[in-house]
């Protein structure tokens, strides 16, 4: 075959490939434009801002490198807030997931008023966080709040749950767990309903107890859902701070302050954008690293159908 003859199909092939590439890029463009405007550009801008000093009228902002970060690590408030957030995550994530799983297993079993139970569990999720926080504000109010009234029945002294540093963070945690467990339950419930009844029957015939079946079949089959819920819970432990605005505003004396609230405060109450930017970058790095670790560790042990 001569080269001139073989060139034509080649060019046709190249044309086809280019056409496909253009097609692909066209399909990607809308999402890419949105992401670039609202995600990539702000991220880069944040990193950029975090490298400059705070500009005032007299001292215009100048490049300071990692000085903002260094200052953060010396800031006792930042350290306290970080510890608060770690505690907050360590308490709310496992408890809400375990609670969600138990509720889902219960709401999935053959019990009367099953749909009422599911609706009841899901209600906190439907409520906006601000509304939920107002509700809990009433529960926690010293004197005539529900908790104190119940406590009074048993002769317990009145407790100002939100007003003292020892209890404020835990009170905030309780609201988060109450709010999130129902949401996570829905995912577990959906996953449980994809497990065919046959598997339970097969296990039963083999002599497996209910607990063995749950441990050896149900929980492994729920692993993808757990991974999904875990990542969501982790992100929420940083993201979900609406209730702080209603309940404690981070107080008393920063005892219930979480990172995102502190970032918001720095940026919009103290107008220290560079410091807020530096904190944001740190949070992004930590969240990214933890998410990557989770996927890597759990993916290997997770069965996807």
């Amino acid at each position: 075959m001569t080269p001139t003859l073989s060139r034509r199909p080649e060019t046709a092939h190249a044309l086809e490939r280019r056409r496909r590439a253009i097609h692909g890029w066209l399909l990607l463009t809308p999402a890419l434009a949105m992401l670039a405007t609202f995600a990539f550009y702000p991220s880069v801008a944040t990193v950029w801002t975090s490298l400059f000093s705070r500009g005032t009228r007299r001292n215009p902002s100048e490049f300071v490198g990692l000085e903002n970060y260094a200052r953060l690590f010396d800031d006792p408030t930042f350290r306290e807030v970080a510890v608060n957030n770690i505690l907050y995550a360590a308490v709310t994530i496992p408890i809400s997931i375990v609670l969600a799983l138990v509720m889902a297993l219960w709401a999935n079993s053959k019990i009367p008023a099953r749909s009422f139970l599911r609706t009841a569990y899901f209600t906190p999720t439907v409520l906006p966080m601000i509304a939920a926080a107002n509700l809990w504000l009433f529960f926690y109010t010293p004197g005539f709040g529900v908790l104190d009234q119940i406590g009074a029945l048993f002769g317990a002294p009145s407790v100002n749950w939100l007003g003292q540093p020892e209890t404020a963070l835990w009170a905030v945690c309780a609201v988060t767990i109450w709010k999130e467990a129902g949401f996570f339950m829905i995912f577990y419930l959906a996953a449980l309903q994809t497990i065919p009844e046959d598997l339970r029957e097969a296990a039963e015939i083999e002599g497996a107890s209910r607990w063995t079946y749950t441990r050896r079949v149900v929980l492994p089959l729920l692993a993808p859902t757990t991974l999904f819920v875990l990542v969501n819970a982790m992100i929420n432990s940083v993201k979900l701070i609406d209730h702080l605005f209603i309940l404690t505003k981070g107080g008393p004396s920063d005892s219930s302050k979480l990172i995102l609230y502190y970032i918001w405060e720095s940026a919009f109450a103290f107008f220290d954008a560079p410091s807020a930017a530096a904190m944001t970058v740190l949070v992004l790095i930590v969240l990214g690293a933890v998410a990557a670790l989770q996927f890597r560790l759990l993916d290997r042990r997770t069965h996807y159908r």
Binding site: A203, I205, A208, R216, P220
Partner: peptide
Amino acid sequence: MVFQSYALFPHLNVRENILFGMKV
């Protein structure tokens, strides 16, 4: 019992599926 759907445990391999009952 052999089920119409076979009722195999999707997360277990052949060996674990066969031995599930014996392990129990």
